[in-house]
Computed example of a mutant assay.
Amino acid sequence: MLATIHDTAILAVEFNISPEVPPGANGLLKLLNWLLWGVMLACVAALVFSGGKFAWEKWTQGSTEAPKMLVGSLVGAIVAGSASAILNAVAG
């Protein structure tokens, strides 16, 4: 019975947690935004390059490596975009 009273007393305590940005976090968030911008630029460049390579391989009847590159660049853009949304939801 003593354990039940103790457990009930612990559950009755209210926690008032209000998240706030730690000091100096604005610089880190700016750096992360710049990094994300660079990653998205690299994804667009990879998309353009793989599209050109896909056209070249189709025209010359060469190997088919470009579709893998194309899918990889699209997946990279999706992951980078999701990271931005998650960061904005957490730090926002």
Results as ranks from 00 to 15, higher is better:
residue 70 L to N: 03
residue 40 M to E: 02
residue 54 F to Q: 01
residue 30 K to N: 04
residue 47 L to S: 01
residue 85 A to I: 11
residue 9 A to L: 15
residue 92 G to F: 10
residue 39 V to D: 14
residue 57 E to Q: 14
residue 6 H to D: 13
residue 25 A to K: 05
residue 45 A to Q: 05
residue 34 W to E: 01
residue 27 G to M: 12
residue 17 I to P: 09
residue 92 G to T: 00
residue 57 E to K: 03
residue 87 L to Q: 08
residue 48 V to K: 00
residue 11 L to I: 11
residue 25 A to P: 00
residue 73 S to L: 06
residue 69 M to K: 08
residue 15 F to A: 03
residue 59 W to R: 13
residue 62 G to H: 14
residue 62 G to L: 07
residue 87 L to D: 10
residue 53 K to W: 15
residue 13 V to P: 00
residue 58 K to H: 08
residue 44 V to E: 11
residue 50 S to Y: 06
residue 52 G to T: 07
residue 83 A to M: 10
residue 41 L to G: 07
residue 2 L to F: 05
residue 42 A to E: 05
residue 85 A to D: 04
residue 55 A to G: 02
residue 47 L to V: 03
residue 25 A to W: 14
residue 23 P to G: 06
residue 24 G to E: 09
residue 18 S to F: 15
residue 58 K to G: 07
residue 37 W to Y: 06
residue 3 A to V: 07
residue 87 L to V: 14
residue 50 S to K: 05
residue 37 W to E: 03
residue 65 E to V: 11
residue 81 G to W: 12
residue 39 V to E: 09
residue 80 A to P: 04
residue 58 K to Y: 12
residue 82 S to P: 03
residue 50 S to W: 06
residue 10 I to Q: 13
residue 21 V to P: 13
residue 74 L to K: 00
residue 71 V to T: 07
residue 32 L to Y: 07
residue 35 L to Y: 10
residue 3 A to F: 12
residue 69 M to E: 09
residue 20 E to N: 06
residue 51 G to E: 02
residue 84 S to T: 06
residue 45 A to H: 02
residue 27 G to P: 01
residue 18 S to G: 05
residue 87 L to S: 15
residue 3 A to M: 10
residue 55 A to N: 09
residue 40 M to V: 03
residue 8 T to W: 08
residue 20 E to C: 07
residue 11 L to V: 03
residue 60 T to K: 15
residue 11 L to R: 10
residue 23 P to T: 05
residue 74 L to C: 07
residue 87 L to R: 04
residue 33 N to M: 13
residue 42 A to F: 09
residue 40 M to N: 01
residue 88 N to Q: 03
residue 31 L to G: 02
residue 75 V to Y: 06
residue 14 E to A: 10
residue 60 T to A: 15
residue 12 A to C: 08
residue 78 I to G: 00
residue 80 A to C: 07
residue 74 L to S: 01
residue 76 G to E: 06
residue 7 D to V: 14
residue 84 S to E: 14
residue 82 S to V: 13
residue 41 L to A: 14
residue 55 A to S: 03
residue 67 P to C: 02
residue 14 E to V: 04
residue 76 G to S: 12
residue 41 L to I: 11
residue 26 N to A: 01
residue 12 A to V: 07
residue 6 H to N: 12
residue 50 S to P: 00
residue 53 K to Y: 14
residue 82 S to Q: 05
residue 89 A to I: 14
residue 91 A to H: 03
residue 2 L to R: 00
residue 84 S to N: 11
residue 51 G to T: 13
residue 69 M to H: 10
residue 72 G to P: 07
